[in-house]
């Protein structure tokens, strides 16, 4: 659906994106994770043609989105706050989007507004942060565009609204559509994303299919007999998430590592549920800062 090829982008002479490449497939929810300042928002803005890349290309169905802006009828960007729409009423926004996006579903939008008890004649600026995000998410989804990009949709919203937001997003996914979400909230992506792209130093470090990730990786709690940490812990495919005395919480990237662990004959091995946050902590440099 969308092919991102070696995107480079510098802002104020500082390289932000340094060779981003990945593909978005239809029928999938893709998560975009990375620490603060890794260029998630810059990347999203480049994908929808707000920023022009210095190098590389963004193709939607094989056509360059920067050369053919008409393609954006099917590629919609939902920013982290609907600041640009604040002067309008909800009804005006819906009418305007109806003019822009040919597949705009007014019925879906009105129903969503009723569901969240948002009056149509209310100005966007008078809504609370959570309401604004519910409104802009519903507005973006109502376009029925084939690719919708959400920039931190749950940032700063309460737990109830977050749940409503995420269910709205997941429910809207069709076979021929895709959703790209950048989020700090890894536990949320863990629940809804099919694929995750990790941004590090402006590069797409890794792209993981979460299903494969779970099959591929293991999170274990291990207690070794010896007081000294074994050499096994220094393997490249092993990452120590936590250590309390002789109790280690580790992540393993290969079956060989698990076989090698068994050879060490530890006192105790317990498999723990793997979360995206664990994987992110490993891949983002290990200090566990939020994405």
């Amino acid at each position: 659906m969308m092919q991102v090829e070696a995107i480079h982008k510098a802002i104020d002479g500082r390289p932000i994106l340094r060779g981003i490449s990945f593909t978005i497939e239809p029928g999938r929810i893709m998560g975009l994770v990375g620490r603060n300042g890794t260029g998630k928002t810059t990347l999203m803005r480049t994908l929808v043609g707000i920023y022009d890349p210095d190098q590389g290309s963004v193709a939607f169905e094989g056509m360059d989105i920067h050369k053919y802006p008409e393609l954006k009828r099917d590629v919609v960007f939902v920013p982290d706050a609907p600041v640009a729409l604040e002067a309008y009423t909800i009804r005006e926004c819906a009418a305007w989007y109806g003019q822009i996006y040919p597949s705009f579903d007014l019925f879906y939008f009105t129903e969503a507004m009723e569901r969240f008890k948002l009056p149509m004649n209310k100005r966007v600026r008078t809504l609370s942060k959570g309401m604004k995000m519910l409104f802009s998410t519903a507005l973006g989804l109502s376009t029925k565009a084939r690719l919708i990009l959400f920039d931190e949709p749950t940032n700063g919203v309460d737990a109830v609204t977050k749940k409503q937001l995420l269910s709205l997003i997941v429910e809207s996914l069709r076979k021929d559509s895709s959703i790209l979400i950048s989020s700090h909230m890894l536990n949320e992506l863990d629940r809804i994303a099919d694929t995750v792209v990790l941004l590090r130093d402006g590069r797409t470090d890794e792209t993981w299919d979460l299903e494969q990730l779970r099959q591929h990786m293991k999170k274990l709690q291990v207690v070794f007999t010896a007081t000294e940490p074994p050499a096994w812990l220094a393997r490249e495919d092993v990452f120590v998430l936590q250590q309390v005395g002789r109790v280690y919480t580790v992540m393993l990237e290969s079956d060989e590592a698990f076989t090698a662990l068994k050879r060490e004959e530890p006192m105790f091995i317990d498999e723990l549920p793997l979360s995206l946050e664990d994987w992110f902590m490993w891949k983002s440099g290990g200090d566990g800062d939020a994405a």
Binding site: R45, G49, P79, V83, A84, E86
Partner: peptide
């Protein structure tokens, strides 16, 4: 100001 031009450039029309 206030990301308004970002919204405008995200629209499906040539600049």
């Amino acid at each position: 100001r206030n990301q308004m031009s970002e919204q405008t450039f995200a629209l499906p029309y040539p600049r």
